[in-house]
Design a protein around this nucleic acid. Structure first.
Length: 154
DNA sequence: GCCAACGTTGGC
DNA sequence: GCCAACGTTGGC
């Protein structure tokens, strides 16, 4: 089993939305980056866990954990002309973009902020992909030891 | 294949 | 709103 971190902007989709969703489950659609696509399509497996991370907001940080309940399958929003993430170059017969379904596991007792994560960037979290300079990937792998350590901060 | 121009992300 | 650090596009 592996661990991940998935970014979302709370103004677009937050943990409240996930909580309200049927069975606390949502399709993680709209990812349009090849590296992230490869992880969605090939690497994320049913039962994997992920941190839900808020970006582009007042207090960036981890707010919840989710688990993968459905493995990579074609993202239909790529074929929807009216969708913001529509990709005219993606052929339905040979889909370019993929998504997984995730289910809310639990909201953390408190937000573990980016600021706080950075305080451990020299030691426990020195290899954490999220903290690497210039990182913009919306999905990043998390090591088991990092997962455990971060939850211990909670 | 190179690389300049452009677009996006995301912290600040 | 600024801007660093990307990724993508397209002319050559």
């Amino acid at each position: 089993m592996r661990y991940w971190l998935m970014k979302t902007e709370p103004s677009t989709f937050g943990v409240d939305d996930l909580e309200r969703a049927k069975r606390g489950t949502t399709s993680w659609d709209g990812v349009r980056n090849y590296q992230a696509r490869n992880m969605l399509r090939d690497e994320m497996k049913r039962g994997d866990q992920a941190f839900l991370y808020y970006s582009s907001c007042d207090v960036p940080g981890i707010v919840a954990t989710v688990k993968v309940v459905k493995e990579g399958y074609p993202d239909p929003s790529a074929f929807d002309r009216k969708d913001h993430h529509y990709d005219p170059d993606s052929d339905p017969a040979k889909p370019r973009w993929f998504m997984v379904d995730v289910q809310l596991e639990r909201r953390l007792a408190r937000v573990i902020t980016l600021d706080e994560l950075r305080k451990h960037a020299a030691k426990e979290l020195k290899n954490m992909v999220l903290l690497r300079k210039g990182n913009r990937l919306s999905i990043t792998p998390v090591q088991a030891a990092e997962w455990k350590f971060i939850l211990s901060l909670e």
